[in-house]
Computed example of a mutant assay.
Amino acid sequence: MKTNKVYLIQADDTLIENAIQNAIIIAPNKKEAVSKFRKELADNEECDQVYDGNFFKCRRLDLTDQHVFIQYGGDTFRFSEVEREEI
């Protein structure tokens, strides 16, 4: 039985107009999450982005870990730089 997991895909590039900066993807694994996100970018007429692992980072979210990930303003940070706050 496949168990779905939750992945956060976040862009490092904020300069692209109409860019998708953050996406939550539910998938059985990281490879499938990236595949679904690539398809969304390709099918989304409002977006000119193409998936490139140099500009997007994908990370599985641990839903048992009670933290809030915060991003300020229009700046995009790598996951290691996003602030985590205890709940």
Rank of each mutant, 00 (worst) to 15 (best):
Y72V: 07
H67E: 12
A23C: 12
P28H: 11
F79I: 05
T64L: 11
S35M: 08
E17R: 15
E86W: 02
K30F: 10
V50F: 01
Q10F: 15
L41K: 01
N22K: 14
K31C: 05
D13P: 06
E81Y: 08
I9A: 03
D75A: 02
A11H: 04
T64G: 07
Q66S: 09
P28R: 09
K5M: 12
L61E: 00
T14D: 15
F77V: 07
Y72M: 06
T14K: 09
K2T: 13
Q21F: 09
D62Y: 08
L61F: 01
N54Y: 07
R78P: 10
Y72S: 13
R60L: 10
T76N: 11
L41G: 01
D75Q: 05
I24M: 14
V6T: 10
D12T: 06
T3D: 14
Q71M: 15
Q10Y: 14
D48S: 11
F37K: 00
G73W: 02
N4I: 12
D48V: 09
K30T: 10
N4T: 13
I25Y: 01
I20L: 09
V68K: 09
R84H: 09
M1K: 15
K57I: 04
D62L: 08
E83R: 02
K57C: 04
C58G: 06
L63S: 12
N44F: 04
E45W: 03
R60C: 10
N22W: 10
N29G: 12
Q66V: 15
N4W: 06
D65K: 14
Q10V: 12
C47R: 00
I9F: 04
K39I: 11
A42K: 12
D65T: 07
K36G: 01
A33M: 11
M1V: 14
L63G: 05
V82H: 00
E81I: 02
A27K: 01
E86M: 03
L8C: 07
M1P: 06
F56Q: 00
I25M: 14
E32H: 09
K39S: 08
I87C: 12
T14H: 12
F55A: 03
F77T: 06
G53C: 09
D65C: 07
I25W: 02
Q66P: 03
K39V: 08
D13R: 11
K57L: 04
H67F: 07
D52K: 10
K5T: 08
E32A: 14
V34W: 01
N54W: 03
T3K: 14
D75F: 02
V82C: 02
R84Q: 10
E45R: 05
M1H: 11
D13K: 13
Q21D: 13
L41N: 00
N29M: 09
K36A: 06
F56E: 00
Y7V: 05
T3R: 13
